[in-house]
Design a binder for these strands. Structure first.
Lengths: 252, 252
DNA sequence: CAGTGGTCTAGACCACATG
DNA sequence: ATGTGGTCTAGACCACTGT
């Protein structure tokens, strides 16, 4: 980040290539992202103030702000005027807001409860190889559970993780909020995900858990969640009965 | 926007209340939004350059940029370095990118074709009253069509509009890209939407159009699309067979 | 009060597109 | 060469939160 005040044409340190231009604030952002990923500041902890960061990195206030703006949009930090900038936490509130898109058709929103059905270690199947980028024969942890919303079971889901990334997770107590466990016990912070949705017919097993008949329509959600470094970490397939709830998607 | 250079405590013109503080760039944004909505610049047309807008409104370059930043995020304008800032267009590309979330499971993305089944004027039903904010007894235009993706019919949908807002639309030729028609013929620009998804069982009518059996699972998408002024304008219920396509949602 | 994030300015210069 | 958006700086001041 050391640079003469106006050396904007050759910013970016030892970058002599004729390649794409990388603005300073992006470099600041990367430095901060790295420090957050490395746990320099714990989740929920306050970052240095903007002038401090600016002085530390030898850039101006505005440049630091632009970097923090992007980190805020990406939910890596949260800013509170008058208080400070904090590393984002994976508390239930945030999960509910960012990752859980199922809403009751009427009534208040709530966080679903979970009941574990089975935890097993096995070889990665085709889906795990494809979605998690694993090699053939790699070990995965597969977790199955049912979830309750507003008192009635409405989701049955299967979660697949690379065992190498979560060693021994199969022997742990598994809380309702898994993402908080990933972060606190394995240092894996999930920051974004993609979900692919289809309508499918319930199998006998699903129908039994959800109190439906075989062939009844279910909403299938395949979620792939990505860590702060961009790698896919969790594959989650959820099957939901949607007679009293719906999936909400904002297009803007 | 006229103001002394540092009168930041009492910005916002004739605002003596002890109410919330409104930053200058928000006011700039509102002025620009209004001008776009009023058609001062047509869709696809170039706005004045940033220095021009700044001089016109008596604010600095940075303030104009911050306003345009937000308008860019909201897809109201698009910026192209070296060329200019343009009023966003509702061409097929943008619709595909912003509003159409169905992707083939494999192969290239494409824009769906449409075949109109029926156009009718009738009284608003419960859904139209609720979703479009209409009064009981208001007239609506209801359009039914099937859509084809990759050669096979996979969507049957029903679109409901307030007739008062789209007078005579039922007598027009209805193109594949309706949002472009709304804009060019009725001055209604849609900028965002919410979609509610459920899995449902196909009725006889839907099964016939989609080549399925009664009771087969379908993805039901209820979309409410909002105009630039924030009012709900279109209610669209789409029923999709999702054996070869899926709905993609990005969580970040 | 001091400390934090948020806004605004004036001016300089860079990168990209087009003539 | 010119005009456009994009980056960066230095400094000032405002709004919010605590002591």
């Amino acid at each position: 980040m050391a640079h003469p005040p106006t050396a904007q044409g050759t910013r970016g340190g030892a970058r002599g290539e004729a390649l794409g231009f990388r603005p300073l604030y992006r470099q600041v952002k990367e430095v901060l992202t790295r420090r957050i990923a490395d746990g320099v500041w714990a989740a929920g902890e306050m970052l240095p103030s903007e002038p401090e960061i600016a002085a530390d990195l030898g850039v101006s206030h505005g440049t630091v702000r632009k970097a923090l703006d992007e980190l805020t949009v990406e939910n890596l930090v949260t800013r509170r005027q008058g208080k400070g900038t904090f590393v984002a936490r994976h508390d239930d509130e945030r999960i509910l807001f960012q990752f859980f898109k199922l809403f009751p058709d009427s009534g208040e929103r709530s966080y679903p409860d979970s009941r574990i059905l089975e935890v097993a270690v096995r070889e990665a199947d085709q889906g795990a190889i494809k979605f998690l980028g694993l090699r053939k024969g790699a070990r995965v942890v597969r977790l199955e559970r049912v979830r309750t919303l507003g008192g009635s079971v409405c989701i049955v889901e299967r979660i697949t993780l690379a065992r190498a990334q979560f060693p021994g997770i199969e022997k742990r107590h598994l809380p309702n909020n898994l993402y908080e466990l990933y972060r606190s016990a394995f240092g894996v912070t999930l920051v974004r995900a993609t979900e692919r949705l289809k309508a499918v017919a319930a199998t006998a097993r699903e129908a039994k858990h959800l109190g439906l008949k075989v062939g009844d329509p279910l909403l299938a959600i395949d979620r792939i969640a990505y860590a702060i470094d961009g790698r896919p970490v969790e594959w989650r397939r959820s099957l939901c009965r949607t007679d009293a709830i719906h999936y909400l998607s904002d297009l803007r």
